[in-house]
């Protein structure tokens, strides 16, 4: 099995889609724990992430890897539900996430959603151009530990600020951690919006959630 595990990690990291899906199917058919297959996907995705950081890979590779993992996830999910006796598998924590109002960018946000899910978090993705009330409603309904606000436009920083203020007004500021991400975001922007932290990429978003929720690294 060791060999196949390495091969799966390699196939994903090297963008060999057909081989990756085949291998995942084979391993599951051989009775390997679906959780183990997901763990291998995470290992592979970390390699892709590192290569992205080093600029070896670019957006298309992230999207392709995401696509492969989504396919494998779709195969694994029913097996996991069987394992859990038909119930939703347990998650590390809940994150409400969306692109703030006035901004329509979603590539980066989708990658963050995907990476968080891959790392065992439940993500409520509210989409793009999300009105403040929609954030508040989703927070009240899902009681998340973390709220993630995405925005690319410079003026989206103002929308983030308004959203953070509204969360405070609704009495949730002490109960959730808020992270922001998107365009040219730094410490100064974070202070301006009133968020707790910012992430430069999806990997940093995962680290932040792990830190806050105390999940496994």
């Amino acid at each position: 099995m060791g060999n196949k595990a390495d091969e799966l990690v390699n196939a994903i990291a090297e963008m060999d889609e057909g081989k990756a899906i085949d291998l995942a199917n084979q391993m599951l058919a051989e009775g390997i724990d679906p959780l183990e297959v997901l763990r291998l996907c995470r290992v592979a995705m970390n390699i892709v992430g590192e290569r992205f950081e080093k600029q070896e890979y670019f957006l298309p590779e992230l999207m392709m890897a995401g696509d492969m993992l989504e396919q494998i996830g779709a195969i694994v999910k029913p097996l996991l539900m069987d394992q859990a006796g038909g119930e939703e598998p347990e998650t590390l924590g809940t994150i409400v996430l969306g692109t703030v109002h006035g901004d329509l960018h979603d590539i980066g946000k989708n990658i963050v959603t995907f990476m968080l899910e891959l790392n065992g978090f439940k993500v409520i993705d509210l989409g793009i151009d999300v009105p403040i009330e929609k954030f508040i409603d989703a927070i009240e309904e899902n009681q998340p530990q973390v709220v993630a606000l995405s925005g690319f436009l410079t003026l989206a920083f103002d929308s983030m600020k308004e959203t953070v203020e509204a969360i405070a007004e609704a009495g949730w500021r002490d109960k959730v951690k808020i992270m922001i991400g998107g365009g040219q975001i730094d410490e100064q922007v974070t202070n301006y919006t009133g968020a707790d932290a910012f992430g430069k990429n999806a990997m940093e978003a995962v680290s932040l959630c792990n830190e806050w929720i105390g999940g496994a690294t």
Binding site: P60, M63, L104, I128
Partner: peptide, 18 residues
């Protein structure tokens, strides 16, 4: 035609990066 926020544009965009 507004492109931002359109899924089809995003897909086409990613396709054309390489």
């Amino acid at each position: 035609l507004e492109l931002s926020g359109q899924k089809a544009f995003m897909t086409a965009f990613i396709d054309r990066i390489n």
